[in-house]
């Protein structure tokens, strides 16, 4: 199955991946072959099978609304690249919220 270069760029942009031209070309081929492998599923007759969102035979796994102690802040911030005023500092981003 053939993938357009544009589609590779789109997926890479969504995943915030910065790819070289060589990588783009390699991934174009690899993604195409992955999709081809999945196309095998199209040959199956699934008309009698209900849509499946989960293959784990579990349902209604819920917990009561109880509170437990959070982590000490020192531990929360231990992996932060930079810390300022008890918060995780990152390069400035546009406010989209």
């Amino acid at each position: 199955m053939s993938i357009e270069r544009q589609q590779v760029d789109h997926v890479a942009a969504l995943a915030r991946l910065d790819l070289t031209d060589a990588e783009r070309e390699r991934l174009r081929g690899e993604l195409g072959r992955i999709l081809e492998a999945f196309q095998v599923l199209d040959t199956l007759d699934t008309s009698g099978i209900p849509p499946t969102a989960q293959v784990i035979p579990l349902g209604n796994v819920e917990r009561g609304d109880t509170v437990a102690d959070p982590l000490p802040r020192g531990q929360v911030l231990r992996n932060a690249p930079r810390v300022e005023d008890g918060q995780i500092r990152v390069p400035p981003v546009l406010d989209e919220s």
């Binding site: 300022e84 005023d85 918060q87 990152v90 390069p91 400035p92």
Partner: peptide, 8 residues
């Protein structure tokens, strides 16, 4: 420097 601070 400009920065964004995250409170989780």
């Amino acid at each position: 420097a400009p920065a964004s601070l995250i409170d989780v």
